[in-house]
Design a protein around this nucleic acid. Structure first.
Lengths: 323, 323
DNA sequence: TCAGGAACTGCAACCGGTTGCATGAAACAT
DNA sequence: ATGTTTCATGCAACCGGTTGCAGTTCCTGA
């Protein structure tokens, strides 16, 4: 049906190897011949078969992108950026969702390993031990998790958490809560570390919480009971859920309790009150992760670490602490 | 490096074809032999190479999923469901984003065509003519667009729009606005058709609007100027943006103007006022689209049309019309 | 004038599976 | 005992490219 390299060879009177080189090593073929071959190929609508190419070269020109939950609004901008960036470099992206389940994540890596040249692991829930073991099968770039000797993109959430805590402290809050995220989340760990190191404020850690608005909703009662006046939530969804839960119980934000989220998702910007939040450079992280992965194919694996800055976006969900 | 079919054959003392059949046609091989081969394969960590298999069978076991904008919260639940459903059937999914650009969409289909067994086209911006032409290259299932002779999943937005309009009419609104979506959007066309057919209410159509909250924000002035008391927006993002724009101009929702969205995205549920909206069965659509596509591989292309019902979710952004 | 390259191109093996056909052995019918 | 199936497996060509090697032609410089 579709034209193959042999059809093109026949129609342009050269050997298949010449056609092959026309596409994969143009400088090795005479420009006159090359143009003729290209014209014929164009005419026949020939496109190289990537599966066949993959077979001999061992390079599929595909990459895998594994996230915990596509529906979590934190990920789509990252996926979108990574996918566009990869495509511009002639790579296609398999996107897979683990449903926050480490076992699914591991199985996914296995089945994907043979089909891709490398995998972008975003906010993995797997332990470092397992990740290191799987690394033998396929190159990784890890996003939002520190794994020894592996190319890594980090969004500096520790710094973001410090910014958020200082912001609250500056508004006079003396006792604040940290709503931590899922066990196994590096992000959550970093936030807890930042909280523990905070000076001049008492930070009580609550959790783990599901990284969804339900998780935030469910935490409302405990937050009220704890007597804090400020909250740093694991992410914006949790923050929004929490605000909802507080409203239901008649507690006003930011009047009585101030809330800071993390991620700067669209919903937060549209929420009322508009969410004060730690903005994460997700699109940049997606692009950089692709770059790092493709780069790691080239030379002999230079593990690199890139840390991207986060920033605090002050909107309406935080205010002066109540006397 | 990785074990191949020949390694397994050698180690288990049979010919490669027997190993091949063990995996792709188990009933053709003696159960004793089969078990031995399976044991050896397990031992060597053998996994069939899909690229090689694709080369001979012509089936890649991959499908493409093309959406206009991954960041649009309407799509992630669909992507998530489709991806999970496909994986359970041993298919992997390439996700690609066209940035709402028909040209990118066309190019994407071309480059993907050779790499996948079929493509899920979600809310395409391409004209039917072009889609029909491209259909020669690769099987499609089209979601949210009616294309003659092609397997199609429709979410009945016409019915949803009628429900929304009746809801507004029931609340006493006599003059309402329809904020239409991008040119080329089938959904938008259906909504306009439903609006034109509405009885007992006057519907003025405004647009096209960008399918984002910016689009809604930008439409606020015109909505106020038009003297309508109710609005049906192209989607929830537009609705939320519009509400924001109305607030900025001192117009209250639902006090002075009622607003209905479409999609039932999370942000709408979390918005204040909570959005009244037409809920779309996105996850079901994703699963069904995968089923239809895989089914179409089997027999001789039975174009099927599935229409999924939509429903109106009444929340807080709609109320009695002002006298 | 001739050795030594450089520039092109053809040849053929190979990547890792699949599959139609042939072979041989065992099971069955007559 | 002989002919016919059925079952299990081996053989080898093939899918559509890539690539090391070798051969040819032509150019260069001594």
């Amino acid at each position: 049906m579709a034209a193959t390299i042999r059809d093109v060879a026949r129609a342009s009177g050269v050997h298949v190897s010449t056609v092959s080189r026309t596409f994969s090593a143009p400088h090795l073929v005479n420009s006159e011949t090359r143009n003729r071959v290209l014209a014929v190929a164009e005419d026949l609508g020939y496109r190289p078969n990537r599966a066949a190419r993959a077979l001999t070269t061992g390079r599929t020109h595909n990459i895998g992108l594994i996230v915990a939950d596509i529906s979590n609004p934190f990920f789509p901008p990252l996926i979108k950026a990574a996918q566009a960036h990869a495509r511009a470099r002639d790579y296609h992206v398999f996107v897979a969702d683990t449903d926050e389940d480490p076992l699914v994540e591991e199985e996914l890596i296995h089945t994907l390993a043979k089909q891709v040249d490398g995998v972008l692991l975003c906010s993995p829930r797997l332990s470092n031990r397992v990740i290191e073991r799987l690394h033998a099968d396929v190159p990784f770039v890890v996003v939002n998790r520190r794994v020894k000797g592996m190319p890594t993109i980090l969004m500096d959430i520790g710094q973001g958490a410090r910014l958020a805590i200082e912001h609250l402290a500056g508004l006079g809050h003396r006792r604040i809560a940290l709503l931590s995220g899922p066990t196994g989340s590096w992000t959550s760990g970093e936030m807890c570390a930042a909280a523990a190191a905070a000076e001049g404020v008492e930070v009580v850690i609550m959790g783990p919480n599901a990284p969804t608005e339900r998780g935030g909703l469910a935490a409302a009662a405990e937050v009220i009971g704890s007597g804090v006046t400020g909250v740093l939530a694991y992410n914006d969804l949790v923050a929004i859920g929490l605000i909802e839960g507080l409203y239901e119980r008649g507690v006003r934000v930011p009047g009585e309790i101030s809330v800071v989220g993390v991620d700067d998702i669209v919903s937060g910007r549209l929420n009322r009150p508009k969410l004060t939040t730690v903005a994460m450079p997700t699109a940049a992280a997606g692009r950089m992760a692709v770059d790092l992965l493709l780069h790691s194919f080239g030379d002999g694996a230079t593990p690199t670490l890139a840390t991207l800055e986060t920033s605090l976006v002050v909107r309406e969900s935080t205010g002066e602490a109540q006397k």
